[in-house]
């Protein structure tokens, strides 16, 4: 076991990890940030996406020890401390961008990364960026709408079905 320290959502956090401990397991089991979901554990689904030093990564495919000293952002840090949803989260709620909600933490974190790079993405750009985030419920349509809305764009242009 090694002691691993990092900053999670702006606060110092540390815990014990083996060499093989995944960042997803470390966040969930050692630090208690269970908002990061593990869907596939095979780098396919994106439910586990968090930001490490400002970029989106699949936390099921990164070792916890590799995040030593890093700034990590998870879904728990997205809403304000009083629970007020941020713009992206609110847009997902308003546009029904989730059903079971299992993929949502990864969707929101990928969206945050997208909007940082590209504040007004087109529908095509949104769909391409979310290639690594799989949703079994929504059919993606309302997710795309939510992201258009979160980036201050006209949602009515997205077909209704």
């Amino acid at each position: 076991m090694t002691k691993v320290s990092m900053t999670v959502n702006g606060k110092a956090a540390s815990g014990d990890a083996e060499g093989r401990t995944l960042l997803s397991s470390f966040l969930r089991e050692e630090l208690g940030f269970t908002g990061t979901h593990v869907g596939c554990d095979t780098s396919q689904c994106g439910a586990c996406v968090v930001h490490v030093n400002g970029v989106a990564v699949k936390s099921c495919t990164m070792l916890a020890v590799e995040a030593e000293g890093a700034e990590v952002a998870t879904i728990e840090g997205q809403a304000a401390p009083d629970g007020t949803l941020n713009t992206i989260q609110q847009a997902f709620q308003d546009h029904h961008g989730l059903q079971c909600g299992f993929c949502t933490p990864g969707m929101v974190m990928s969206t945050a990364a997208l909007l940082k790079e590209n504040p007004k993405p087109s529908e095509q750009e949104i769909r391409e960026y979310l290639e690594g985030n799989i949703c079994r419920c929504t059919g993606y349509h309302n997710i795309v709408k939510a992201i258009m809305a979160a980036s201050g764009q006209d949602v009515s242009a997205i077909a209704a079905e």
């Binding site: 780098s43 994106g46 996406v49 970029v55 989106a56 990564v57 699949k58 495919t61 990164m62 990928s110 990364a113 997208l114 960026y129 290639e131 690594g132 985030n133």
Partner: peptide, 9 residues
């Protein structure tokens, strides 16, 4: 290659 998260690592 892959998707954005794969490309970041």
């Amino acid at each position: 290659i892959g998707d954005p998260a794969v490309r970041n690592r």
